[in-house]
Design a protein around this nucleic acid. Sequence first.
DNA 1: ATGCCGGCACGTTGCCGA
Length: 257
Amino acid sequence: MKIAAWNVNSLKVRLPQVLDWLAAQQPDVLCLQETKLTDAQFPAEALRAAGYHGIFHGQPTYNGVAILSRVAPTAPLCGWPDGNDNQARLCAASVGSLRVVSVYVPNGQSVASDKYVYKLAWLARLRAFLADELLRHPRLVLLGDFNIAPTDRDVYDPVAWGEEVLCSPAERAALAALHELGFHDSFRHLYPEAQAWSWWDYRAAMFRRDLGLRIDLILVSTALVPAIAAAGIDREARRAERPSDHAPVWLELGDLP
DNA sequence: ATGCCGGCACGTTGCCGA
C-alpha cells in the first residue's frame, strides 16, 4: 500500500506532471494540496482515465484539496463536518481499512499577522476533529502540507529561520499536540537523523542550492506504526520543467493483522 | 535592501504563497 501527498501549486498547471507521476509511481492513494480549482474545474475524467477515483474539495484561486485512489473511496468528507468551511483545506475518505485525511494547513504568512492567528486556530480545530475521527477510525493516515517544519533538523538554516513562521514554538506545539493524539511522523520513524526537504522556495535558486524545509508530512496513527515499511521524498519531481515548489512525499505500508 | 519565482484575477499590478 503506497500512499503519497503532493502540494501541486495549481492542478491546472501541474495535471500533466501528476498524470506522469501516477503512471511512474503507481501509488494506491495520492493526496493533493493547492489544487486552486473549483469542483467544476476538477479534472475528474482525466484522472479516472488514468485509473484513479477522486474526492475533491476546492474553491476559486486559492487552496483546494483532493484524494485520488485506485479503489473507490467511501465515506467522503469535504471540509469541516460542521459545514463552517471558508477555506478548502481539509478532506477525508476511507480507502479499504484506512481512513485518509488530506490537509493543507494555512501558511500563516508571519508570526505578527492575522493569518498566523488563523493558522493556530485551524490547527486546534484539526486536533479536535482528529480526536473524534480516531474514535471511529483507529487506522488513520493524516498527510499533506503542514506548513510547519517539525524541528530544526527539518530546516536548512535553523539560525536564519529562528522562530519565524513555519518554525515558531506555537506552531511546533500545535504539531506536538497532534503527536499526543498518537500520530507518528512516518519519515522520522524510519530516518531519525536524516535531513531532507520537501519544499524549496522558487526564488534565489533554492532548489539548485538544495536549501529547503521539510513541511510536507505523512503522520500515521499508533495502530499503523508497525506497518511502516518505507518512506521517502521524490526530489526528481521538483527537478521538472515548470515544477511545483513542493516534492511528493510517500509512504509504503505493509500488511496489518 | 523584504526582492528574487510563480500562479492567479474583470490583469497590464497586486495578492498570496512559504
